[in-house]
């Protein structure tokens, strides 16, 4: 039996089981869907708002951006949250104690996080198309572009999440990842066009995947005339894929090394120490 192939297969199966568990755990679903539902609701109220003579309302304009944000958020925080929780409750150590367990664990979580992100994208896409009739989403080239950007986003954010998750060795430090990701939302033109920001903030915003995911989603879902609102008055398709790919390559290069280091440090007393510290903090 080819053991490497077997590890990938068990990892894939683990991913499917984890996906089923996520989609049937009320707490998981609510924790994820509630913020999204609130954001969509806000956009619905923004259907009447205009941005400097743009052809569609601010609400319609932000719906695709929100889907892009959801991919980045779900991809990064999904993996970071899982890795940090699983180090405290011993799931990671359990994986380490089984033959091929670590490979199976990582593949499983990459698969299940990707599935979860895809499912939430599908739900948001459906909600967006029903609620915002100004979206332009009725030709195969748009569907293909949409799918390509979503897949690119997942390929970029999952390894990035793994890098950050391997670095955050304690759930109490989750905020160190959470805050910058939230911050990048503010400067990435998700809820208001980035061109309204000062130039130097625009430059910072464009360094992160958040902006490019929002741009790609707007490109796929908004009428072409909307490009006028973007930086340079165009969609910058090639640059968008190139920046996301650069983040993906950098993360994929770093992730295996950091994950191996993380796995090597795992032991029963390390888990017990982390748990004792958490209990002390939460009284």
């Amino acid at each position: 039996m080819n053991t490497a192939l077997h590890e990938y297969k068990t990892g894939w199966k683990r991913g499917l089981i984890e996906t089923r568990i996520s989609l049937t755990s009320v707490s998981d679903l609510m924790g994820y869907l509630m913020p999204m539902a609130i954001a969509v609701l806000v956009l619905v109220f923004m259907r009447g708002a205009e941005f400097e003579g743009a052809p569609v309302s601010l609400g319609s304009m932000n719906m695709p951006s929100l889907i892009g944000m959801n991919v980045v958020f779900g991809g990064i925080m999904g993996i970071v949250g899982t890795l940090s929780m699983d180090r405290t409750n011993g799931t990671l150590l359990r994986a380490k104690s089984m033959p091929g367990g670590m490979t199976g664990y990582l593949i499983g979580h990459v698969v299940s996080t990707a599935m979860f992100v895809l499912a939430s994208v599908a739900v948001m896409l459906a909600a967006g198309l029903v609620l915002f009739d100004e979206l332009d989403f009725d030709s195969p080239d748009r569907w293909l572009l949409f799918l390509a950007v979503v897949v690119m986003g997942i390929v970029t954010t999952l390894p990035l999440g793994a890098v950050l998750g391997a670095l955050v060795n304690n759930p109490k430090n989750m905020g160190l990842v959470m805050l910058p990701v939230m911050g990048s939302v503010a400067i990435s033109g998700i809820f208001y066009p980035i061109t309204a920001l000062p130039d130097w903030l625009q430059a910072i915003g464009q360094a992160f995947p958040m902006y490019w995911m929002g741009l790609g989603m707007r490109h796929a879902m908004l009428p072409d005339a909307m490009a006028a609102v973007e930086i340079g008055g165009e969609w910058r398709t090639v640059t968008m894929f190139a920046v996301l790919a650069a983040w993906a390559v950098a993360s994929l290069a770093l992730a295996p090394k950091l994950l191996r280091r993380m796995a090597r440090r795992e032991s029963g007393s390390a888990v017990a120490e982390r748990r004792a510290e958490m209990q002390k903090q939460w009284g």
Binding site: D86, N89, G90, T91, L92, L93, R94, G268, V271
Partner: peptide, 9 residues
């Protein structure tokens, strides 16, 4: 191990 709480779901 002494205290394992993994894979609770």
């Amino acid at each position: 191990l002494q205290e394992w709480r993994d894979n609770g779901k």
